[in-house]
Simulated assay, not measured.
Amino acid sequence: MRNFIKYPSLKLKPRRDYCVPVGPSFRFAWKRRIYLLGSRLEFRAPGHASAPNTWSHKAGPVSHSHEGAGFRSCRLMPGEGWEEAPLFGRTWDFYGSWFVGNVARVSCYGTVLRPKNLEKPLNFLHPRAFESAVLGYLTAQWGHEVDEDDGTPYQKAPINWRPVKDMPVPAVIFDIRKTKSLGGSNSRMLFFPISTDRVVRFSFSFKQYCTGPLEDEDSKSAPSPCWS
């Protein structure tokens, strides 16, 4: 649990020195259970813990049936080539020591994804088709987000692509890093298929509340607690 004496949510002074934020503990977090097309997914996640008087996202856990109820077009995707159904959502704020207040935020989203209007059938349980689906989704969701002035993408991905070997289906984890301080986001993504045409995505997006250039953010607030 967070040390409520040294790391309170109250902000009574500005942050001037390097900060290592502290947030909820995953070690003693509640076990969550979601049923996905007859299979069971279990994981630990802390309770919703956002700072007072701030907007945050909370959802689920929601199981996913064969009927696939709850699908909608993916947000912010121009071509609407993919649909999503929500599974889980939580927000966790991280605090600095001795009344510095909220210095970072991690948002967790879990969704089931499926493509719309496939030209030919694919089997996402096959590793190559699964990787193509993940890369296609990334391009469709964020490939259009570029700086209007110089054409630089707001985000760079995938970074640190690595397979998850202890799952019974193909699975991959990778990072997304923003390239500009005023656009994009830093995220860690987990993808795995649950059927021939459906993929699960869990994203952990974090934001550091810092001012100044992008290259100075990590020197003011440590990103490691949000990535762990």
Rank of each mutant, 00 (worst) to 15 (best):
F28P: 06
R72H: 12
L125Y: 00
I34E: 00
N123Q: 02
K120S: 12
P24E: 15
L87W: 03
S50N: 11
H66A: 15
S73E: 01
G38K: 07
L36G: 03
H57C: 07
M77N: 04
R128F: 00
L125C: 10
S97P: 07
Y35K: 15
R32W: 13
C108T: 13
N123W: 04
C19V: 10
R72Y: 08
P21D: 00
P52V: 03
N102K: 15
E80M: 13
S39D: 12
G136Y: 05
L138A: 11
A140D: 14
E42P: 01
Y35T: 14
D93C: 03
G60F: 03
A104W: 06
V20N: 09
A59D: 12
S107K: 07
C19I: 01
H48D: 10
L125D: 04
P127Y: 11
R114N: 08
F88G: 08
G23S: 09
A49M: 04
R40A: 11
W30K: 15
G23R: 10
G101F: 10
S73Y: 10
V112W: 08
A29S: 15
R105T: 14
T54F: 07
P61V: 14
A129R: 08
S65H: 13
P61D: 13
S50Q: 09
V20P: 12
L76Y: 13
A49S: 05
G79R: 06
S39C: 09
G89L: 13
P121F: 05
A45D: 00
P115M: 06
S107Q: 15
T111H: 01
P121Y: 02
A49D: 14
C19N: 03
P24W: 01
G68C: 07
V103W: 07
V103Q: 02
F26V: 06
V112A: 08
V134R: 04
K120W: 02
G136D: 12
T91V: 13
P121E: 14
I34Q: 02
C108R: 07
R33T: 15
I34G: 07
L122G: 09
A69T: 15
R114G: 01
Y35R: 13
F94T: 03
R90S: 06
A51I: 12
E84V: 02
P115D: 04
S97W: 04
L41T: 08
F88C: 04
P61M: 09
F94Q: 01
V106D: 01
T111N: 05
V103N: 04
T54W: 08
P78C: 03
R90V: 05
G101I: 02
P61I: 13
S65A: 13
T111D: 00
V106I: 05
G38E: 03
G70E: 01
L125H: 01
F94V: 09
H64Y: 15
S97F: 11
I34Y: 08
F124E: 03
P46C: 03
K120E: 10
L76E: 04
L36N: 12
S56R: 00
A51S: 12
E67I: 14
P86K: 08
S97N: 14
C19E: 03
T139H: 00
E84K: 11
S50E: 12
A140P: 03
T91W: 07
E67Y: 08
R105G: 05
S65W: 02
Y137S: 11
L113I: 02
G60H: 10
V134A: 11
L36M: 07
T111Y: 11
H57T: 06
